[in-house]
């Protein structure tokens, strides 16, 4: 069974890009447009890997990651943050909340898949 990836981003452009890239790589994709939506999608459909943006309305990525980690079922699910900043501060912020790793936007398909395989081979 193909692995399921939950992508959480408020930008449709970004969600679409992730969707196409991930689908082409054979992943099953579930989309959410903010943290709150992400939690409901997670409860409804589950995920093997979570990719989330940080800056989002309603519930931002940091709160979302914390909420995921607080659930035993997702304590050890790889969570990758999407960040435009290559700045360490942003990465650290995500990591402090419990993110496994990060994807630097803009990403190219190969590097995206590689990062995912890195945390969930």
């Amino acid at each position: 069974m193909s692995k399921r990836i939950l992508t959480v981003d408020d930008s449709k452009t970004m969600r679409d890009m992730l969707l196409v890239t991930l689908k082409q790589a054979g992943y099953d994709v579930v989309q959410a447009d903010d943290g709150q939506d992400g939690l409901s999608k997670l409860a409804a459909e589950g995920a093997d890997v979570i990719i989330t943006d940080i800056n989002m309305p309603v519930m931002d990525g940091i709160a979302f990651i914390k909420a995921c980690r607080a659930q035993a079922a997702y304590a050890s699910t790889p969570i990758l943050t999407l960040t435009t900043e290559s700045s360490d501060a942003k990465k650290a912020e995500g990591r402090a909340a419990g993110a496994t790793g990060w994807i630097v936007k803009p990403f190219n398909p190969e590097s995206l898949i590689r990062v995912i395989e890195k945390v969930c081979p």
Binding site: D10, S11, T13, M14, M17, N55, T84, K105, P106
Partner: peptide
């Protein structure tokens, strides 16, 4: 931020 994100891509 979103505008920038897409623009980068």
């Amino acid at each position: 931020h979103s505008i920038k994100g897409g623009a980068g891509a």
